[in-house]
Design a protein around this nucleic acid. Structure first.
Lengths: 149, 149
DNA sequence: TATTAACCCTATTGGATTAGTAGAGAATAT
DNA sequence: ATATTCTCTACTAATCCAATAGGGTTAATA
């Protein structure tokens, strides 16, 4: 399960991706209202995304947030890594946040690890290949909505 | 991330899968010792697996645990569903434990859900296709250990 | 330069979940 | 009987999650 934090982040980022062309800054308040997200909580999330290099902000009157780069170059994988720390189902599989499993005798021959590595690889393949731009587009293209068919 | 509970369960099940041919019962104590798992905690896990239909037990002297069916017919997906409740990254995608996302306006057009559905489908595809028997076999077959190459 | 708008940062909190531990109870073989 | 072994309920400490609170800092503008 991904956390609400991550889900809220993605919802807010999609709004910012829609606004990207305009070059304008968007207020936290507006993001919170538009997506029905708790404002103070969203503040923390946006701060994480900013520190993660995905957003840029401007303080003071006339301030706000916008994407740090084109929505085509921001992937869901990046976002989840910032907010969840990793995409891996086991700590011993994470690139970013590797930790040894203390009860594991031999990582090379651990078959739990081997299967979970397949899962991680499949997940990474999807999430690092899907950008905010892709997601925006996907809403309106029925062929990708397999659950509708 | 999968919980330690699930990881411990898989480790114990793999030992039981190895012992399956013998038709013999295995003691909780032996499973705990062999895989270095906390015994009392493992007791609870095995109970869950038994209630989930994956193990059968016998009490009293000469008692113990064994698999309820052939290791070929026990998948990692089943095990994770018993211990984690679901394989889905979002509650609104779970078959077994569906819950609506309260802040979500329209499930049909939610692109977060659409991407996560891809992840869930890929995960399910792997985990429901991998049995305990597969895992045991995989330890000794180098072609599946992609990280060795 | 005072005001106001907006993000920034730290701390706190209530509740849930995780990862166990404790101990008595029930079944079974000998 | 009694050893043994699983069963069941309860408890606990630590951590994480999902917020909320409130003051601090920055910047525009009148």
């Amino acid at each position: 399960m991904i956390s609400k934090k991550t889900k809220y982040a993605l919802k807010a980022l999609l709004v910012l991706a829609q606004n990207f062309e305009s070059q304008q800054l968007t207020l936290i308040t507006d993001l919170a209202l538009k997506e029905k997200l708790p404002k103070k909580f969203l503040e923390l999330i946006l701060l994480d995304l900013r520190n993660g290099g995905i957003l840029v902000s401007k303080r003071g009157k006339g301030g706000g947030y916008k994407l740090a780069k084109n929505p085509e170059f921001i992937t869901i994988g990046q976002v989840i890594r910032i907010l969840e720390g990793t995409l891996s189902p086991l700590p011993c599989l994470s690139q970013k946040a590797y930790r040894k499993c203390e009860e594991c005798l031999n990582e090379e021959t651990c078959s739990v690890r081997a299967v979970m590595k397949e899962v991680r690889d499949a997940t990474v393949r999807i999430l690092d290949a899907t950008s905010l731009h892709d997601m925006l587009h996907r809403i309106n293209t029925s062929e990708s909505l397999s659950y509708v068919i």
